[in-house]
Computed example of a mutant assay.
Amino acid sequence: MNMFASTLYRIMEWIMRFAYIQLLWVGFTLIGLVILGFFPSTVAMFAIIRDWLRGKTDIRIFPAYWQYFKTDFIKANLIGIPVIAVMLLIGINIFYIQTDMTDYLSWTYIPLFAFMLLILLCLFYLFPVFVHYDLKIPGVMKNTLLIMLVSPVHTFLMIICLTALFFVMRTLPALAFIFGGSTYAFITMWLSLHAFNRVERKKESVS
Rank of each mutant, 00 (worst) to 15 (best):
50 R>L: 10
12 M>L: 13
167 F>V: 14
115 F>D: 00
82 P>Q: 01
170 R>L: 05
78 L>Q: 13
148 M>L: 06
50 R>T: 01
183 T>W: 07
44 A>L: 12
88 L>R: 00
188 T>E: 00
147 I>S: 10
128 P>F: 01
192 S>M: 11
163 T>G: 14
146 L>T: 15
19 A>W: 02
18 F>Y: 15
189 M>C: 04
142 K>D: 00
66 W>Y: 10
141 M>G: 04
108 T>F: 12
68 Y>N: 08
184 Y>G: 01
178 I>L: 14
174 A>H: 00
182 S>Y: 03
178 I>Q: 11
151 S>G: 06
18 F>R: 14
124 F>V: 04
95 F>N: 15
91 G>V: 00
193 L>M: 15
42 T>Y: 10
179 F>P: 08
141 M>V: 14
177 F>M: 13
114 A>H: 03
115 F>Q: 00
130 F>Q: 07
40 P>R: 05
27 G>V: 06
206 V>I: 14
187 I>E: 01
60 R>N: 05
167 F>L: 11
83 V>Q: 10
174 A>L: 02
1 M>A: 02
44 A>T: 09
174 A>N: 00
192 S>C: 11
7 T>E: 11
85 A>G: 10
21 I>K: 06
32 G>C: 09
77 N>G: 06
74 I>N: 08
44 A>F: 09
159 I>A: 11
136 K>E: 15
175 L>A: 06
145 L>H: 03
15 I>A: 10
25 W>C: 08
180 G>Y: 14
171 T>S: 13
153 V>H: 01
66 W>S: 07
45 M>V: 05
200 E>Q: 11
21 I>A: 08
92 I>P: 00
164 A>W: 11
123 L>K: 05
69 F>Y: 13
103 D>T: 13
24 L>E: 07
154 H>Y: 14
33 L>T: 11
102 T>I: 03
54 R>I: 09
187 I>R: 03
129 V>C: 12
